[in-house]
Design a protein around this nucleic acid. Sequence first.
DNA 1: AATGAATGAGTCTTCATTCAT
DNA 2: AATGAATGAAGACTCATTCAT
Lengths: 202, 202, 202, 202
Amino acid sequence: MATTPAKAPAPDKRRLILDAAVRVFARRGFNQCRVADIADEAGVAYGLVYHYFRSKDQVLSTLFEERWNVMVEVIEQVDEQELAAREKLRTVAGFIFESYRHDPDLMKVIIVEVTRAANSFGRTHLPEIRLAYDGIARIVAGGVQSGEFRDVVTPSFAAMAFYGAVEQVLTGWIFADEAIGAVEFEGAKDAIVETICGGLNG
Amino acid sequence: MATTPAKAPAPDKRRLILDAAVRVFARRGFNQCRVADIADEAGVAYGLVYHYFRSKDQVLSTLFEERWNVMVEVIEQVDEQELAAREKLRTVAGFIFESYRHDPDLMKVIIVEVTRAANSFGRTHLPEIRLAYDGIARIVAGGVQSGEFRDVVTPSFAAMAFYGAVEQVLTGWIFADEAIGAVEFEGAKDAIVETICGGLNG
Amino acid sequence: MATTPAKAPAPDKRRLILDAAVRVFARRGFNQCRVADIADEAGVAYGLVYHYFRSKDQVLSTLFEERWNVMVEVIEQVDEQELAAREKLRTVAGFIFESYRHDPDLMKVIIVEVTRAANSFGRTHLPEIRLAYDGIARIVAGGVQSGEFRDVVTPSFAAMAFYGAVEQVLTGWIFADEAIGAVEFEGAKDAIVETICGGLNG
Amino acid sequence: MATTPAKAPAPDKRRLILDAAVRVFARRGFNQCRVADIADEAGVAYGLVYHYFRSKDQVLSTLFEERWNVMVEVIEQVDEQELAAREKLRTVAGFIFESYRHDPDLMKVIIVEVTRAANSFGRTHLPEIRLAYDGIARIVAGGVQSGEFRDVVTPSFAAMAFYGAVEQVLTGWIFADEAIGAVEFEGAKDAIVETICGGLNG
DNA sequence: AATGAATGAGTCTTCATTCAT
DNA sequence: AATGAATGAAGACTCATTCAT
């Protein structure tokens, strides 16, 4: 957001490779991609990928960590604000949906190849993934303590349900090959909160 | 030769292979498994896997379809019963959690390798997967029509949230290497319904 | 020697690969050879090499062990015979030179790629290599004990000198691209014994 | 900037690289070393290696030639002296063993990576290697002509045996990871001469 | 039906060398 | 002279699939 001042920022080859990797991973999936695809997409020589990254795995891990750290931080910052728990959850959902809106490829890669890949990167990055769940659980716990939320399910269960619902919506968008409209993006965070906080019951 | 005589059930090699595949796929993941692993686990010759199945992919697809069809049918049957929508959802959640309780390996494989594998089997089996979503959405729609549910989110959105929450709970169990207690299984379906239908708000 | 009865022994593919490996390793050296070269030379598919051997390294190790074990055994058997130490050494030298005469490629590979490769296979197979040195040293020690040999250098030093001289002669043959004549083979063992046992001094 | 002023000897980068190469080649072997390892060990930039040397091969060749030329010269000078052939051989063996004592890494590299590498550098440098053999053979021939040595084996065969014995002793030291004691260094040259010239026979 | 040897395309990774600065 | 980013060819190993018996 602040990297492009006036004329032309030196095109960092490392960044070029990471951005290219996002595109090819999103397009065909991590396992279906050859390292050559990344290099080609980035317009750099094959070997340069290995100059900057130890392995193909590390390219994906780097992408994940870059973004996931931001999300974990956002969740924490949101929790520190003076807001109703419901509003905090809305903000978190909004941030995640906005992340997808801003860079759908990156979010697709993170969710499909890491977050939901229980047998490969999901297990490797489990500690980091849990940081996000825990942050959400703390928001819920705060809501329970303040009396805003009922004390019917454990905060960590509620966090699971909340995050699961959010990710499923994203998965729906990922599977849908059509572009997502602005209205849907806007409505999604409200719908999530309406469902999880308000409940379906009349 | 008959599938189920009187005493000793004929050890159907095809079944042996499928069951072995579930175990090895659950243990190390579909991609990390070689066809030889399946054959070894089943105690049959390498080539026999290819006698019964066209490919390694087809082994997984068969496992998925066997189970998923049951689930889709259950959802439909539940919807046909004379029940409150909330009770229908509770039954569906209960069935899914029971499925995991009964055969955690199979459910793990189906969820991790198919349902959440957007770049491989998830896309292949998308139509079948959507059948389940649609079934749930119909239950919600019925609840809205009868006035039981508020008309705040679309039924298909609610179905996503519901199913996403359920799957996330299962994912949590899958990641947790410890065994899940009976109480948790029982409580899970109530907690899901309490969260999605009742809502967190007090 | 006993594997070929009457007509045509089934051409064991594993053996085919080993024999082919000897030829290509001798021709261009282990490091300069690709696994494909072995397969091509053997007339089998690439993958078959890996069906029978864990790695390219293991092909060489197998070749080495097959032959080296024979040599160690011969040295031991020679030592058990009722012979003057000098005759024992002559027999050992003769066996080694005959080994080269019978299969120069194999001996070249063993010496160049294992025995003299202190940074790779030489270190891996050091224990086995030392078995041969030790056997020779025992022969010398016997000669000293019987009074046949003077007690001027340690048996293990004498063994080193003896084996070093033998190997250097072989190395000379290996470097010489011309074929070695029968006379030279015959003379070599005598010359070695004459040099090491008789000494150069008049 | 001058190569050798008064006090601080200018740290010739070329020399730095050569010395570093000796250490890393000795440690892990030529083939197991990357050019980066040499540069790192020398504390210079990667590219500088290629500023001073055409290739990685040339670094090793330079090291070999520097030292080997000295040895060939020593052998020639020894032969020109008024000494018994036996004393000449003792001096040559002594020089080689002293070379190892003074810089074991360098001698290890020369022997393991060049002299005994029949499929790579050994073949490239064969002419130079033979110069040493020839020099030793001339010493033996002189001994035969003067009647000091018996005329039982050809001088070139005797040279092979002598050099082979010497190198085998060095190889033993190279393989032994422990340091070699002063006594052993001293005794080695006598033992070699005692064995090759005196002979084992009593 | 059952076996397991045989096939060969696919791909990650390494690393010597070049080159712009 | 010195730096280190950039290049790309080379090769070991994997493993799904086929096939002869």
